[in-house]
Computed example of a mutant assay.
Amino acid sequence: MTDRPRSAPMPAALRAGRPPRHPALTIRCPHCTAAEGARCTTRSGRVTKTDPHPARQAAHAIATAVCPTCQVGLGTPCHDNGIQRPDSNPVHNARYTEAGRPAA
Results as ranks from 00 to 15, higher is better:
73 G>V: 04
54 P>F: 03
8 A>I: 11
85 R>S: 05
12 A>T: 12
44 S>M: 05
86 P>M: 00
59 A>F: 02
77 P>N: 11
56 R>F: 09
98 E>S: 12
57 Q>H: 05
2 T>R: 15
82 G>M: 06
84 Q>P: 14
100 G>H: 06
39 R>F: 13
41 T>W: 09
9 P>L: 15
29 C>S: 09
34 A>L: 08
52 P>I: 00
50 T>K: 07
91 V>M: 03
7 S>K: 13
53 H>G: 07
8 A>C: 10
45 G>K: 04
51 D>C: 00
53 H>V: 11
13 A>I: 13
38 A>I: 07
100 G>D: 11
5 P>E: 14
90 P>Y: 00
91 V>H: 01
47 V>L: 13
10 M>A: 15
78 C>Y: 02
91 V>G: 03
90 P>L: 09
15 R>V: 12
70 C>G: 02
104 A>H: 01
64 T>L: 05
40 C>H: 02
74 L>Q: 10
56 R>N: 04
13 A>R: 14
2 T>D: 15
42 T>F: 08
65 A>R: 05
28 R>H: 09
63 A>F: 03
45 G>C: 11
54 P>W: 03
19 P>S: 10
5 P>Q: 14
3 D>M: 15
46 R>Y: 13
68 P>Q: 00
101 R>N: 08
58 A>I: 02
10 M>N: 14
26 T>C: 06
80 D>A: 02
77 P>Q: 12
23 P>T: 07
57 Q>C: 00
82 G>L: 05
83 I>Q: 08
30 P>F: 12
10 M>S: 14
41 T>S: 11
66 V>E: 08
33 T>H: 12
34 A>K: 09
48 T>K: 13
19 P>L: 08
4 R>Y: 15
14 L>M: 14
70 C>N: 02
10 M>T: 15
27 I>T: 09
87 D>K: 01
85 R>A: 03
47 V>T: 14
99 A>R: 01
51 D>W: 03
62 I>Y: 01
18 R>F: 10
83 I>Y: 03
78 C>Q: 04
27 I>H: 06
55 A>T: 00
7 S>Y: 15
74 L>I: 10
19 P>R: 07
51 D>S: 06
102 P>C: 05
11 P>M: 15
22 H>I: 09
49 K>Y: 14
53 H>Q: 08
20 P>F: 10
100 G>L: 05
52 P>A: 03
26 T>A: 14
49 K>V: 12
85 R>N: 03
61 A>V: 06
100 G>I: 00
18 R>G: 13
77 P>I: 03
78 C>H: 01
84 Q>S: 11
98 E>V: 12
1 M>V: 15
10 M>R: 12
38 A>N: 06
49 K>E: 14
55 A>Y: 02
55 A>W: 01
47 V>M: 12
43 R>E: 09
55 A>P: 07
79 H>F: 08
